[in-house]
């Protein structure tokens, strides 16, 4: 995969992938935005957790970038980049984290549990693997309705790969032969637990064969490789190939959440190739290959900072929900709501 990047680089000032710079901008925006969220969290401005995708921006952005209108995306907690690439406005994120009643979740759910199912982005629940079969159902229904050319993509981690729901969901996708891409990012820590207490197989991508999937691996710190491998998987699924499993390798460069200092991450693992910072690596490549100059990069940072500040400032000015004004009805059929005395 690295070869692809090098090939692109050898042709001076030509990006290794046509979406390379677009992807980089989203990665940078994600990093700046997430740093802002972390800072708000430390300042006590965010209630609940803050979960960052630091280190996983390359693989995540590639997950969102090749999906189209009519596709289904079920992201997980480290997919800010993918969500943005799929079209989620930054304001939705700021509103959800800051509890604005104008956000997509209106204070009923927070942080990464947001979504806009009508736009194709499902709102994850915390139980890992649960969203896989939901994507299958969306795809099955689209096929029943006669839609064509759609694809579904969902993400999971090496920890989430070990749940029963993941197994059931991955299998049922193959049984239904729906156009699904599962992108599993092995960031080497499921909360605090390293790989050796998470799975016993040599490589998670080996499971692809067992499920009847086509499998591919990618260096999650290499943006060009992520773009190439994930776009190819999306393309194959869209073309009617079996479901696709992509396993990416990274290191989570933050705690599980911002409450977690990740002191359990060993020095040895920090020296591994997969521990590189995908964003830094991309930026360095861009400068070395003169895809952008420092001035343009700085300009991009300024623009992004303004976008982030505007989203946060807007959300901060909005009303938060009020218990006495809340509609405490969990079902849509109001006349069937149980009247608890």
């Amino acid at each position: 995969m690295l070869q692809t990047a090098e090939r692109g680089a050898s042709k001076s000032k030509k990006a290794p992938h046509k979406k390379y710079l677009e992807a980089f901008r989203i990665m940078l925006q994600t990093r700046v935005f997430e740093e802002k969220l972390a800072s708000l969290y430390r300042g006590g401005m965010i209630t609940g957790g803050v979960y960052l995708g630091k280190g996983q921006e390359a693989v995540s952005v590639a997950c969102g970038l090749f999906l189209q209108k009519g596709d289904v995306f079920a992201p997980l907690i480290r997919d800010q980049a993918g969500r943005s690439a799929f079209g989620e406005p930054l304001l939705d994120v700021a509103r959800t984290y800051l509890g604005s009643r104008q956000g997509p979740m209106r204070g009923r759910d927070g942080n990464i549990h947001r979504g806009c199912p009508k736009a194709g982005q499902l709102a994850m629940i915390s139980h890992l693997g649960a969203m896989i079969s939901v994507v299958v159902g969306k795809l099955l229904a689209k096929r029943m309705k006669g839609e064509k050319g759609f694809v579904g993509l969902t993400t999971i981690g090496e920890g989430g790969m070990q749940t029963g729901a993941t197994h059931e969901g991955m299998n049922i996708a193959a049984v239904e032969r729906v156009p699904l891409v599962v992108v599993a990012t092995n960031n080497h820590y499921a909360y605090s637990t390293p790989n050796d207490r998470q799975f016993g197989c040599a490589d998670l991508v080996d499971r692809a064969k067992g499920y009847g999937y086509e499998g591919s691996s990618v260096d999650g710190t290499d943006l060009a490789a992520c773009l190439e491998v994930i776009s190819a998987a999306v393309k194959r699924a869209r073309a009617g190939r079996p479901p696709q499993l992509v396993v990416a390798s990274t290191l989570r460069l933050a705690g599980h959440g911002e409450h977690d200092d990740a002191s359990y991450v060993t020095d040895d693992i920090r020296r591994e190739p997969f521990a590189q910072d995908a964003l830094q690596r991309t930026e360095q490549f861009i400068l070395e290959q003169e895809l952008m100059d420092r001035e343009a990069l700085q300009q991009m940072r300024v623009e992004i900072a303004a976008e982030v500040d505007e989203a946060v400032a807007t959300a901060q000015q909005e009303d938060t929900p009020v218990g006495s004004e809340e509609d405490w009805c969990a079902i849509s059929t109001r006349e069937l709501a149980d009247q608890i005395p």
């Binding site: 499902l122 649960a130 159902g137 309705k145 049922i172 049984v175």
Partner: peptide, 20 residues
């Protein structure tokens, strides 16, 4: 369906959200 109660319901949820 396969013997996958979790995935059966998950699939139904997705299909229902898609209008089925």
């Amino acid at each position: 369906t396969p013997i996958s109660e979790d995935a059966m319901v998950g699939t139904a949820i997705g299909a229902a959200m898609e209008g089925m």
